[in-house]
């Protein structure tokens, strides 16, 4: 079999193996307040990541990027080749969606040998269990792309960015680590910006710094949700902040 043929079958297999979204129809929302019935690690040491990253078993690397509410995994897949030696974890609460991402990553791995080995996904409620996955100052980047806007005031406490939750994000982020948020809902954009602006452990990042950050341009275009917004010609609102050291 010639090299060319090989490529063709590989390409075919890829299209055959990639999971199709239509078989993973999911609800748009999930209640973050309800008691979770899926298994949660009791502590960061409790999780066996060798199953998530079989190629990195002996590397002693720790996860550095977390995509909170990773949805269908578009960002992870774009980030993976950019940072091939950084472990990244997507967290998604919706069962079917996380299942889809899992299949998608496995399919990508098998069709592109040696690639996409540094990304994985877990089904979890990151608002409740983030410290069960990551230790203090472990992460260098966190992503919150197009989170659920929760318009009603009584549901504002369900928003993934809030002052009390930023305390926990500051705990898992190393000093200098960056938190990326983007939304197409202006009200939520203002809210996230306000929370990050008032939080004493986060400082704003200048536009010049952002313009040279290769990750920043992915925020609006990498995810499925972002592409939808772009398709409809919608506006996006971002807030990117850096974790700073605690001073009394």
């Amino acid at each position: 079999m010639s090299k060319n043929d090989n490529k063709i079958t590989e390409g075919k297999r890829q299209s055959a193996c990639l999971p199709r979204k239509r078989f993973y129809r999911a609800r748009a929302h999930s209640n973050p307040l309800s008691d979770s019935h899926f298994p949660i690690p009791f502590s960061p040491a409790d999780t066996d990541y060798s199953q998530h990253y079989p190629n990195f078993v002996h590397s002693n690397l720790k996860i550095q990027f977390a995509d909170i509410g990773c949805g269908f995994g578009g960002l992870l897949i774009k980030l993976s080749p950019l940072f091939p030696n950084t472990l990244m974890l997507g967290m998604e609460l919706r069962d079917k969606v996380s299942e889809y991402v899992k299949e998608r990553i496995l399919a990508l791995r098998s069709s592109n040998l040696g690639q996409y080995e540094n990304i994985s996904v877990v089904r979890t409620n990151s608002m409740k269990y983030l410290p069960n996955y990551f230790g203090k100052a472990q992460l260098s980047k966190m992503f919150f792309l197009f989170p659920d806007p929760h318009f009603k005031e009584k549901n504002h406490r369900r928003r993934v960015i809030s002052i009390p939750l930023l305390d926990e994000y500051a705990y898992v982020l190393d000093v200098g680590g960056i938190i990326y948020t983007i939304t197409d809902v202006e009200e939520l954009g203002d809210w996230m910006k306000h929370c990050l602006e008032t939080h004493p452990l986060f400082a704003t990042i200048t536009d010049e710094e952002l313009s040279v950050d290769p990750v920043f341009e992915l925020l609006a275009c990498a995810t499925e949700e972002g592409q939808k917004v772009a398709r409809n010609g919608g506006q996006t609102f971002h807030a990117v902040y850096r974790r700073i050291a605690f001073v009394e």
Partner: peptide
């Protein structure tokens, strides 16, 4: 109080 010293998990 925003600076978390630790989580005791187990």
């Amino acid at each position: 109080a925003h600076e978390i010293q630790s989580f005791c998990l187990g």
